[in-house]
Design a protein around this nucleic acid. Structure first.
Lengths: 259, 259
DNA sequence: GGAAACGGTTGATCCAGGTCAACCGGGGAG
DNA sequence: CTCCCCGGTTGACCTGGATCAACCGTTTCC
């Protein structure tokens, strides 16, 4: 569990103003502030590697976290040790809000690979006097986004079948990449098939079959976890519940018949 | 859509100090404030009836809401009109936080029966100067609770089978009743079988069968939606993943054989 | 009062996706 | 270099719960 604290200048605020990723981190919140500088507050940063924990389930709440680079999964665990991945976080996403009310984090947050994580000490945030209202709105907005994400996931898991979930997932990864300034049709999936399956409530085998199916249909190209191309339009069609099965050549069944 | 605004005394804060349910509303947040009076702020109240909306999906965000009495369901809708109930709210629960980040509510909030709903104007909340920090913590805590609830629901839906979900749901309703000062073993389910099924990702028929099964096993007594008795201990056992099928007489299959 | 609509229950059947099993290829350790 | 392990893929089979269908009691509305 490697941890590095970047040099800070407490009296001058944090290093956020100079962070090369600050637009990613704050882009969605800038409507609440005139400039990034107004949001400066004490922040420390550390580098994690694959499997390292940002925080543990049950650990005392002390800070909110932002992903500066890399990817993180949040995992909730049942009494008997069964794991459920409640979300994947990418640069600009916040972590840890679920621990605020109870005083203890409710999930494990685990790095999927090398990741840079910013720690926002919660008491510092609350006591920050400059631009207090902007900060307040920022925090509320961060939590609100988390709520929205979870509700959308509930909708996805509740109303979509395996194929639709997989298409939805790929598109979500794609737009996350795009938001971070990368290509939306060429990127690397940071998580394993098992993680995807766990997150989408599907067996690993189903995930694998669907990816293969999508490839055979020409909707994606990939090698291992490297997505090389992705037919966003058709995948978007797939995420909508069918019924109009005539309109698009979905060929739900026996699509392999004349492969 | 009946709506009543209770008399307010803006200059003196709201009516919360005199609200007979304020303990329910704030009990979980009192660690953040010395007394309920410190949390007073402008609040209006209205009475809704079965099917009335607290707010609509897509409607511009302007306020957070608290359930003073009655019950509310939050429903997210897919593009093609499919509905997913993301949660049920009872007295003391907050509503509307998912609209804060985007500026538009993401779900429909619909009264399950007659309900009294308090409206907390968001800009008023932010501009409230007395006890600003307590209010800030209160709001963050409210949002954090919502996040936690959704994550627990994701775990329930992702890792538990139909029977376990149903047991979990009944216990959750039971403890919600208890929290509101009512009997945890004798209460009325405010929602239909269809709503329960939608919420738990189960067919109505499955919900009905499981309730009947529980009754036949002597775990609950009910008539229509009136729960008259509920074996909390055994139901709690049921919520845990089995495997130790020998320890408890779960009799998962053919339990009807010698009924 | 009758009928129609609605919520709930129960039985019979079906299927999407889980489970089990075999296999494959790459990468790390010795 | 070889071996082993792990993540991924593919095939065959199985099952939990959905779907379809019939029916019943209540409520609501002519």
């Amino acid at each position: 569990m490697a941890s590095t604290v970047l040099p800070l200048h407490p009296s001058q605020g944090s290093t956020c103003g100079k962070c090369p990723r600050n637009e990613l981190c704050y882009a969605r919140f800038l409507s609440y502030a005139k400039s990034v500088e107004q949001l400066d507050f004490q922040v420390s940063n550390r580098i994690l590697h694959r499997g390292d924990h940002v925080f543990y389930s049950g650990q005392a709440f002390s800070a909110l976290y932002m992903v500066r680079s890399g990817h993180v999964k949040t995992v909730m665990v049942t009494e008997d040790g069964e794991e459920q991945i409640t979300g994947f976080s990418c640069p600009g996403d916040s972590l840890g809000a679920d621990g605020l009310a109870s005083g203890h984090y409710a999930v494990d947050a685990v790095a999927l690979g090398t990741a840079s994580i910013c720690t926002l000490n919660f008491e510092h945030l609350l006591r920050n006097t400059a631009r207090k209202e902007e900060l307040q709105r920022l925090m509320l907005s961060m939590l609100s986004e988390t709520i929205l994400n979870n509700e959308e996931l509930l909708l996805t898991l509740g109303k979509l079948d395996a194929q639709q979930r997989m298409a939805t997932f790929l598109l979500k990864q794609s737009s996350a990449q795009q938001r971070n300034g990368c290509s939306p049709v060429s990127f690397t999936l940071p998580m394993s098939r098992a993680d995807i399956g766990n997150h989408l409530n599907l067996a690993v085998e189903t995930v694998s079959r669907l990816l293969t199916q999508f490839r055979q249909r020409g909707l994606i190209k990939f090698n291992r976890n490297d997505i090389e191309w992705l037919d966003i339009d058709t995948l978007t069609d797939l995420t909508n519940r069918r019924e109009y099965a005539t309109a698009a050549p979905l060929v739900t069944n026996n699509f392999l018949a004349h492969g």
